Simulated assay, not measured.
Amino acid sequence: MSVTGSISAISLGATLYMPCLRDDLFSALIGVRRIPGLRSAVLCLEDSVLERDLQLALTHLAALLRTMAAREPSPADPLIFIRPRSAAMLDHILCMPGVEHIDGFVIPKAHADTMPAYLALPLHDRHRLMPTLETREACDPQSMRRFRDQLLAVQDRILALRIGGNDLLQAMGLRRASHRTAYEGPLGNIIANLVAGFAPWGFALSAPVMERFADAALLREEVALDIEHGLLTKTAIHPAQIGVIQAALAVPADQAEEARMMLAEDSPAVFAREGVMCEPATHRGWAGRLLERAEMFGIADPLPLRA
């Protein structure tokens, strides 16, 4: 399974989920009414579309793909992914004219028993996959270990693993408190376990959505915790969240300087900076990713946490 082109998960930024029921997909993504700041989007045919509306949603998607095929792509275009309902639906989508212009697919309800059906499909060389960890299997380390071993065989195809926070809570019969971050309830432990189970093997993970899209201060606090957990891209459900998330991904100037010092060719094996030990041998990976983030989202002063 070969993959052409190179996309970094960090470049996704705030990934906006958009139901395919929208009849303005091209305009909102690429056209004159493009959503400001949009870096990546997922066109959803799954939970956000009722069964009775599915044919209309597929018609809108087919129209978007035809329009994309008829134009020259631009470097300013956002990354576009499709979230099908099933492997059978993805097989149908792969036959649509223009699908080769899509960057990839988000795989719903992904685990070791469901993924082989998707991997068996005739994906285009450029298509990258983002499996979503959102079923009860994500709470079982043994199940996730089996899934990780399966994905290692196709790792160049996997752009990121998306953590489906609301579905994971639904599996436990819970709903997140609207005034707290995801890390202040049971979801926090699950996120930490998924990071520990996948990140050391080279997989990027995406942070779950925050439902309370009108609370910018809480969203900034949650993104700071996402970053601390190594989650450098996040799902968004409202355009207002995009700017907040991507501003929060900007790198504090002092951290950027520290990262440059660690990556310098003449850096000592261990040095102190403002009372903190810096050891390039152990911090080099962090430094490289931080500077990649700075290149994408710029340099900013540290954002204050909620009081």
Rank of each mutant, 00 (worst) to 15 (best):
I102D: 00
L123H: 08
A88E: 11
I102A: 02
I107M: 11
C95E: 15
D125I: 12
L129G: 02
H101C: 10
H124W: 02
V106G: 11
D125W: 12
R126G: 10
D125E: 13
M130C: 05
C95P: 01
R85N: 06
L94Q: 13
H92K: 12
A110N: 04
T132G: 13
I107R: 11
G104E: 05
P97D: 09
K109T: 06
I107N: 06
I93M: 09
L94D: 00
A120L: 12
L123M: 07
D91E: 15
D113N: 14
C95S: 12
G98P: 11
H127R: 01
A117E: 10
L119T: 03
R85T: 04
L90M: 15
M96W: 04
A87E: 08
A112L: 10
G98E: 04
L119W: 09
H124K: 12
L90G: 05
D113K: 00
I107V: 14
A110E: 02
D103I: 07
L129E: 05
P108Y: 14
M130T: 03
L94R: 14
G104H: 03
M115R: 03
H92A: 13
S86R: 12
D125V: 15
H92P: 07
I107L: 03
D91M: 00
L94F: 01
V99K: 01
D125Q: 15
V99E: 00
R128T: 02
A87R: 12
P131Q: 01
M89I: 13
P84T: 01
T132D: 06
H101N: 13
L90A: 07
S86W: 03
G98Y: 01
A112P: 11
T132Q: 10
K109E: 07
L94C: 09
H127W: 07
L121M: 10
G98W: 00
M130L: 15
A110Q: 02
I93D: 01
V106Y: 05
P97N: 12
L123Y: 14
I102H: 07
G104S: 07
M89V: 13
H101T: 15
P108R: 03
Y118S: 05
G98S: 00
M89S: 12
A88C: 08
P108H: 13
G104I: 04
I107K: 13
A112D: 14
L119N: 03
A120F: 05
A87V: 05
L121E: 01
M115F: 13
H124C: 13
D103N: 15
V99D: 01
V99R: 01
P84F: 08
M115E: 14
P122H: 04
H127K: 04
I93K: 02
R85M: 03
L94W: 03
H127P: 00
M115D: 04
D91R: 06
R126M: 04
A110P: 05
P108A: 09
L119F: 10
P84K: 00
H111P: 10
V106N: 07
L90H: 08
L129I: 09
E100R: 15
M89H: 10
D113Q: 15
F105M: 11
P97T: 05
M115T: 09
L123W: 15
R128M: 08
L123S: 08
I93H: 02
G104M: 00
A117P: 09
K109M: 02
P84E: 02
R85H: 05
S86C: 06
I93Y: 02
I102Q: 03
V106W: 03
P122N: 14
F105V: 06
P108E: 14
A88F: 09
